[in-house]
């Protein structure tokens, strides 16, 4: 199996995921709901078959080039998305992860000449993918939690009941926070492997840690004062600002002129 067969696989995988998602929606109240599951899982199986085939063909783990890397992004993101979906029934998360996975697979499809492009030595590591994938998922959860926070603030203004809103926000923050923790720790383990130290307070690391701390405050604030919904919602919205700085803004800070993470 080689990249020459790739287009066929991309179409099959994307097709079955999209059909799966449509069926999830159409059949949500029907007895044959399981039909959707078959398509969702089939997509993962097909892309895994391709990857294993490629692995055997290359006689080495396909972990070296950017294209091979994207293949793994596709697999991991979709698997995590499915697990989260079956555990929590979060349809938007299913859609988000599968569309991300399809995007990665199609980038490979349209850019066949980048199969061997520049990947600096420090990035050529088995940690690269898990590290990035869990951050992508964590950020998605936390972004949504802030959205829910804003909805909550709006509801409060209108004097509507916010019990469900805050409960949902709590749950999403727990999931997002857990993924953020994974990202942080994977990053630390990787840094140890590549540079000899797990934490160097590089500006990006500092801001990632700050993001983590702010959500830690939110979690504990909720544990202690369940009634204080209004302040909680505000913390949630503010936390997102820190997250955005970490995500996009770090490169522009005066403290970040020597970062290894600037990209």
């Amino acid at each position: 199996m080689t990249w020459y067969n790739y287009s066929l696989y991309v179409y099959c995988v994307s097709g079955s995921w999209i059909i799966g998602m449509i069926l999830v929606y159409l059949l949500r109240k029907k007895r044959i709901k399981w039909l959707a599951d078959i398509f969702l899982v089939a997509g993962v199986v097909i892309i895994s078959v391709f990857t294993v085939g490629l692995w055997m063909e290359l006689e080495r783990p396909p972990f070296r080039t950017l294209a091979e890397t994207r293949l793994w992004y596709g697999i991991f993101i979709s698997v995590i998305g499915l697990v989260i979906y079956y555990r929590w029934r979060l349809f938007w998360m299913l859609a988000y992860t599968l569309l991300m996975a399809i995007l990665f697979l199609f980038i490979n499809y349209f850019n066949p000449d980048t199969f061997d492009k520049t990947l600096m030595p420090a990035l050529q590591s088995p940690w690269f993918i898990p590290h990035v994938v869990v951050y992508i998922i964590g950020y998605a959860f936390l972004a949504v939690s802030s959205l829910i926070g804003l909805i909550g603030i709006y509801k409060m203004r209108k004097n509507k009941n916010t019990d469900d809103t805050i409960a949902l926000a709590d749950n999403i923050v727990y999931l997002g926070f857990a993924f953020l923790t994974f990202g942080l720790l994977f990053g630390a383990l990787w840094a140890k492997e590549a540079w000899g130290h797990y934490w160097t307070w590089d500006p990006k690391e500092t801001w990632a840690f700050l993001t983590w701390m702010v959500y830690l405050i939110y979690i504990h604030f909720r544990v202690s004062k369940k009634k204080n919904v209004k302040s909680s919602l505000w913390i949630l919205s503010l936390a997102f600002i820190i997250l955005l700085i970490c995500w996009f803004g770090v490169n522009y800070l005066p403290s970040a002129q020597t970062s290894v993470h600037v990209y």
Binding site: L90, D170, A178
Partner: peptide, 21 residues
């Protein structure tokens, strides 16, 4: 953290287990 992913905010988890969130 794995536990957090699986249980979420645990006291609500039971209530909402089979409903769409």
């Amino acid at each position: 953290s794995l536990y957090l992913v699986w249980m979420g905010r645990s006291n609500q988890a039971k209530k909402t287990k089979n409903n769409d969130l």
